[in-house]
Nucleic acid binder design. Structure first.
Lengths: 351, 351
DNA sequence: CTGAAAGCGCTTACAG
DNA sequence: CTGAAAGCGCTTACAG
């Protein structure tokens, strides 16, 4: 009736708890014969190590944490998070680690509400490390996690490795080049980048990378800040193009969106503005997803391997937790998935 | 340097550990003066209860678990899961409980791989209860969780309450009626329901509810099984309509899809078949999401409150964990969000 | 190769 | 109202 524990196994086998523990953990100190007996009884009785007891004596929780600072109403519509979680989970599952997830709404104005969660998790010893998303300029999490000495990995971040932290950095420049070259080859000479939240490090990196490659290819560009939602992507697009004549020199013939949601919002805006895609405007998304595939027209997108980003990040974090020297990991740059939204510019007579 | 514990607080205050513990946990047995002193020092030193120690002595992990049995490659594209997780998290956060998440790919053929996770979590004492998704016919989790005596809630399930389990049941019949009436009012007399995975309990309930209401309103219907993916929703639609003449009597003038992904897949199929929406075929989705809003045309959908389903489920589970009598909770039926995909049937001369 | 013992940080009867 | 003690289930030096 009572739960099966190491003590109960030891008693039934007439041995000490220590020997049973050694046998169960595959450590030296017991004969192979003894070990086999222990393992067989444990399997028979369905023994599992009590995770709290083990965590208490080892100061290891065997769990890593993720705090998503995102409006719960929005988070459902962003394929990115679930995809990266799936990748993370694949590694954690393999290595018998667990994922602790928290979703908190961003406080309007006040201090970020996620910070308290890291503090608490660390204080409670509930996680061995955390995966960090959406690194921003002067991110308050960086000093906090250093103070807490909690291992962490900046997923897709630009942060340098420290004693207990590292980053999986995405090749923003390579990705930007892929996009800009594709546009250049198709005759685009003026483009717009509709970015996600401007305070995010990776958006700054992308904007400047797009700018750099565009200018070196003789393409002029404009950057507009949006917020990764479809609704705002739509509004930003309308604001950008309102009042511009498609035939004008400064009319952007291609719109590059920071994610799939803004891209579909953009398509909707273009429809309302009576602009045809790709005949008058081409559209490219930085993230691919089902939305890009099934929108009309389907949207060309960078084929970033989001699940792989999750896998690499989780793997890196577990290494740091286990005491390995932190080192940043660079993700490969992505190819472009061509779809109907990306077209060739027809030269205007006046050019 | 060392971590701040109850023992260290007691020492600094010159009191026993027991008194400190009572003070910290708001229990009787200490004077208010003592309590205030303890609390103030604890706050100053940043004390947090070690979760493992607390869990070990209380046999409570303060965490609930979710196992998603889903292909990791697909899970990112399903807004449903992230939305329900956000709702669940809102309650867990309020009540200082934690969420343990695992995503496992369905084994092809062999035993379901999620079962071992429940076994392990239970044996390790890692979670106090679990939330179950996608209840299917003769679900093997039901006997397993009873055997483990692990509290659980069937999210959107039809399962009856037992000693340690309950369900948040969705009013499938009410939802079906909403859809069917909307179609009936618009003159539809033959419809098709493209369902999700046929082995799921809630899909069986929906199909039969749609059938019941349709027949009582003099509408004939056909059910086609798909699998919740956009790709298969597209294929199923093509298979359903291939060879049918739009003017024929048995041509369904409305297609109802079991979720948003299949609905956008369906739109894509209709475009390929050269059928216009809503002039020739109306489309309705059982789940609403950004995809329905931004597809073209936008897709009418049931406005089910998925986050609320998550909130109710989490709340119910926590009640059961705390020893309350399990009782099923019925979710309200949803209204229909009218959008351009839902149109009126023009009577054919031959009818 | 094995056993007796201390310790991880908490909670909780039980005496005073 | 407070303190000394046992216990939750594990791990890990330390003796034998």
């Amino acid at each position: 009736m009572a739960n099966v524990t190491i003590a109960s196994l030891a008693q039934q086998l007439g041995m000490s708890k220590a020997s049973v523990s050694y046998a169960l953990n595959g450590r030296s100190g017991v004969s192979e014969e003894t070990r086999a007996k222990v393992l067989s009884l444990a399997a028979e009785l369905g023994w599992y190590p009590n995770s709290s007891a083990r965590a208490l004596s080892q100061s290891r929780s065997e769990a890593v944490g993720i705090v998503l600072l995102r409006d719960p109403a929005d988070v459902g519509s962003e394929p990115f998070y679930m995809s990266v979680l799936a990748g993370i989970e694949a590694i954690l599952g393999e290595r018998e680690q667990n994922l602790m997830l928290r979703i908190v709404a961003p406080e309007t104005g006040a201090e970020r509400r996620d910070l308290g969660v890291y503090r608490r998790w660390s204080g409670e010893g509930r996680v061995d490390g955390v995966l960090l998303f959406d690194e921003c300029r002067n991110d308050p999490r960086a000093p906090l996690l250093t103070e807490l000495a909690l291992p962490c990995v900046w997923v897709g971040g630009a942060h340098g490795a420290t004693a207990r932290s590292a980053a999986t950095s995405v090749d923003q420049s390579g990705d930007a080049l892929t996009v800009v070259e594709a546009l250049s080859e198709r005759g685009h000479r003026r483009i717009a980048y509709i970015s996600g939240l401007a305070q995010l490090e990776h958006e700054r990196a992308r904007s400047s990378a797009v700018e750099k490659h565009a200018s070196s290819l003789g393409i002029s560009m404009v950057v507009v800040a949006s917020d990764y939602t479809a609704a705002d992507g739509e509004m930003a697009t309308i604001a950008l193009l309102a009042g511009l004549e498609p035939a004008a020199r400064d009319f952007p013939t291609a719109l590059v969106y920071g994610n799939d949601l803004m891209a579909v919002g953009g398509l909707s805006a273009l429809k309302k503005l009576g602009l045809s895609v790709p005949e008058q405007v081409s559209v490219v998304s930085w993230d691919d997803s089902i939305m890009c595939q099934f929108s009309s027209p389907p949207v060309a997108a960078l084929q970033r391997d989001i699940a792989e980003l999750g896998r690499q990040s989780a793997s890196l974090l577990l290494d740091i937790v286990q005491g390995h020297e932190p080192h940043n990991v660079r993700m490969q740059s992505a190819g472009l998935r061509q779809r109907a939204s990306l077209g060739v510019v027809r030269r205007h007579p006046n050019q």
